[in-house]
């Protein structure tokens, strides 16, 4: 599913949600519920950062158009109409990504896919904050996943074998 409105260029103030929006685009077809909540996280975070400057306001208005169009298209999906169900959906998806990457890591199979899975898992745990405060377990998973993605990426870039 392609989201309705095309977004304008990302304002530099919103750089911190750039990868969440990219994850949303990557999941529009694969898992629209994940795509919806990644955009919702970017929306709420963007509004906290800057909803006054013309460039940011224009971007947020378009992002809101996308979210409203997605909600309309997914209207009968429980994960969208009931956020408690949505929260479980996103958390399960994030955990699935984390476990896949962790299994590859333990099997010492280091590759771009497992790095991306670690990193995407950490982005999806960020997204869980739209539902409320993160659990300590999720905070730890996010920290570990982001560190692992960075560490393994740097090792492969330098031609070293991750320990």
């Amino acid at each position: 599913m392609a989201a309705a409105a095309v977004l304008p260029t990302l304002p530099p103030q919103f750089k911190s949600v750039q990868h969440h929006l990219r994850t949303a685009q990557e999941h529009d077809k694969r898992d629209p519920v994940v795509a919806y909540y990644c955009r919702l996280y970017a929306m709420q975070t963007g509004m906290k950062i800057d909803s006054k400057s013309p460039e940011c306001r224009k971007f947020l208005l378009k992002l809101m158009d996308q979210l409203e169009a997605m909600k309309k298209q997914l209207g009968d999906c429980e994960s969208i109409t009931q956020e408690i169900v949505g929260s479980a959906h996103v958390e399960n998806y994030a955990l699935k990504m984390f476990l896949y990457a962790d299994n590859e890591d333990r099997a010492e199979r280091f590759h771009k896919n497992m790095i991306k899975s670690f990193y995407t898992a950490s982005l999806l745990i960020d997204t869980l904050s739209v539902f409320g405060e993160l659990s300590e377990e999720n905070v730890q998973h996010r920290k570990y996943a982001r560190w692992k993605a960075t560490y393994i990426h740097n090792c492969l870039k330098n031609g070293e074998i991750p320990q």
């Binding site: 909803s51 006054k52 306001r57």
Partner: peptide
């Protein structure tokens, strides 16, 4: 013009907040 611009901005900001609340069925 400054004050007009500011009031437009705050109206749109309120509009965004209201749309977000409606989106999350929090109205």
């Amino acid at each position: 013009t400054g004050s007009i611009g500011a009031s437009v901005a705050s109206t749109e900001q309120d509009d965004l907040s209201q749309r977000l609340a409606r989106l999350r069925d929090q109205v």
